[in-house]
Design a binder for these strands. Structure first.
Lengths: 219, 219
DNA sequence: ACCTGAACACCGTTCAAGT
DNA sequence: ACCTGAACACCGTTCAAGT
């Protein structure tokens, strides 16, 4: 006799999709086990059939976001290639701000983090860095990328998705305009420049200068 | 007639001390309002006399940790001065790993963050960077410092304080030794170097190379 | 194998009441 | 002004039970 089909043909992907949607809509706290279960239409404890605990679900969510597409074409030299791969990583994470705290809260130990590290190691080797410097340089680049993303996502007040860049620039400008000029003259003077540091431009500027330093080359 | 003294002469500092102690002992989740209240011997809702909500308490905790001692002596040129101030910031944050997620989760908008930014702006100005480059460079340095701290703290598995460096190096070595050599040849080859990247040394290495790049100077 | 109902031990926060 | 008791609406997780 054949078995009756299960009432819910639930999959891990379905659960992760629901959790990510909640995260995007409501911020880091929104992706509760109970909320995710409700979103896919099961009882809270049904989630434990697929994930051992909440940490496992979060790990899977992060891992999926770090699964960058394999590079197909070379855009240029090793420097622009490093820029391309880190920009893609940044784009993905900034698109899902709620996942960023989950990424920053646990070790960068997954398969896709290894893939990324291996790729950066190869590119820095191409750049003429000896193996030790390439390894340390790879770590420094990851530090810069994750730090950029952390600061960018932290700047968004509410939960959910990042507002468009023009709004974020206006918000920064408003915040910086309240810096007391007497106590912070340099900050106040630089406020105009600093307000526009939203998005990929400031990221690219800093990364290129870091690569300059790693390559021992004048910017 | 004189008023009777309050039963508990509670202060904000007392509450923050208790919350920090819980954070250091039990990790980010340990500093609950209820736990903190119990630690100082009051009912949970008594905390709301001093802090509007949990976010306010966390903000105060972060702000207190960013209150770096004012520089008294100049250690050398602008580069070593940048290194000194960021090392001090890193030292403080790494000493209280539980606070790091709280710092990374909200905008860097407090008074002490402004003080730090103003100081870095001045130092980069000394280094000959024009105001715009000094402003962008300051942001890049903050990105690198916070990224370093995030990665370092995230690498610690359990809650509470960071274990001694020798233990952390052993743990990294063990984790890296399990990287499949076939799929990740460069990572496996560099595992020996990478295992020892705990602590201030790798931080200083990366920071100096970033400053090299910002200053347009060969390392 | 997969799901549910019910429960346990927690949360942050609010409100009315006490001193 | 400051604190408490009690309650509300949440959590993650476990366990026994159902199919």
């Amino acid at each position: 006799v054949s078995e009756p089909p299960p009432r819910h043909a639930l999959t891990e992907t379905e659960i992760l999709d629901a959790a990510l949607a909640l995260l995007d809509a409501g911020g880091p706290a929104a992706a509760s086990i109970r909320g995710t279960a409700a979103a896919v239409g099961v009882a809270p404890n049904a989630v434990y059939t697929y994930f051992a605990d909440k940490a496992s679900l979060e790990r899977a969510l992060v891992e999926r976001l770090l699964d960058l597409p394999a590079p197909t074409t070379r855009s240029g030299d090793w420097r622009s290639e490093v820029e391309a791969v880190t920009l893609e990583l940044r784009r993905r994470l900034v698109a899902h701000p709620g996942v960023v705290p989950l990424l920053l809260g646990r070790p960068l130990a997954g398969t896709h983090a290894l893939v990324l590290g291996e790729r950066l190691l190869g590119l820095l080797g191409e750049g003429g860095l000896d193996p030790a410097a390439a390894a340390r340089g790879t770590y420094a680049i990851m530090v810069f990328v994750l730090g950029s993303i952390a600061l960018e996502v932290a700047d968004v007040p509410g939960a959910g998705a990042l507002p468009p860049e023009t709004e974020r620039i206006d918000a920064r400008r408003a915040a910086l305009s309240e810096v007391p000029v007497g106590a912070f003259p340099r900050t106040a003077a630089a406020a105009g420049v600093m307000a526009t540091w939203v998005g990929t431009e400031q990221f690219g500027w800093g990364l290129r200068h870091l690569l300059d330093g790693l390559a021992g080359r004048r910017p």
